[in-house]
Design a protein around this nucleic acid. Structure first.
Lengths: 113, 113
DNA sequence: TTAATACCTGAACAATTGCTCAGGTGTTAA
DNA sequence: TTAACACCTGAGCAATTGTTCAGGTATTAA
């Protein structure tokens, strides 16, 4: 009632605003989730978390073209999620991030319900 | 060398394939991450994790239209990530998932580096 | 050198996505 | 009844995304 704005929710809004923190942080957070939101990319991450693989191996494993894999690996490389090691003509990729596996573990539990 | 296929990576591929599990599981996993991959949606989830809010409040908080919020809430409702409670003209939403907060906590650690 | 292999790259494409807009429903107060 | 409010909805849109395609580089073997 009375002179409160709209309805008495200012407290809740202020509290929620504090929980959000600054915008950049939230955007970074969402970008972290975005990397894992594509099935192909998630499969690459899952595979590389277990084994070091070359591009051809990953393409064979996921049944997609080497080009598609290469594009995704470039992104994962840029985001420093994977590292690579050259050996002659081949390039071996592996996971370069400890937190990601924890993330996937928690999410798996969520999917299992 | 010799009669092995391509190069001696069959073992690694077999091991990685096992780590992937079945395709549906991975797709479900990626969909979980996808929900949190949009900044607006992530902000809604963060806000509702802290406070029960009505649509108008969320729109005010995030500075977007009520329509946009309503569309996102419909998705979150469908995925059973939020629950709602009607009170007169207003609809109050709150988070309805324990795992999501763990997920965000781990991802936050990852962003912090 | 030539050919084959392994991988990378940019352009172009179809598909998906998040939002706006206009209009809808349901509830409340005058 | 009328108007205001709170929210929902479908259509349409611009922007983004993942992939294919064609061609490129680098390394190795013949």
């Amino acid at each position: 009632m009375s002179n409160n704005w709209h309805h008495n929710h200012q407290e809740a809004i202020r509290s929620a605003r504090k929980a959000l923190g600054n915008n950049e942080r939230v955007v970074s957070l969402s970008e972290t989730f975005k990397v894992l939101s594509d099935p192909t990319r998630l499969k690459i991450v899952l595979a590389l978390a277990k084994e070091e693989l070359c591009v051809f191996d990953i393409a064979k494993l996921l049944e997609v073209t080497e080009s598609a894999i290469s594009h995704q690996l470039r992104l994962l490389k840029t985001l420093r999620l994977v590292k690579y090691r050259k050996d002659g003509k081949m390039v071996f990729y592996s996971l370069d991030d400890e937190h990601i596996e924890d993330l996937i573990r928690i999410a798996s539990r969520h999917v299992a319900e």
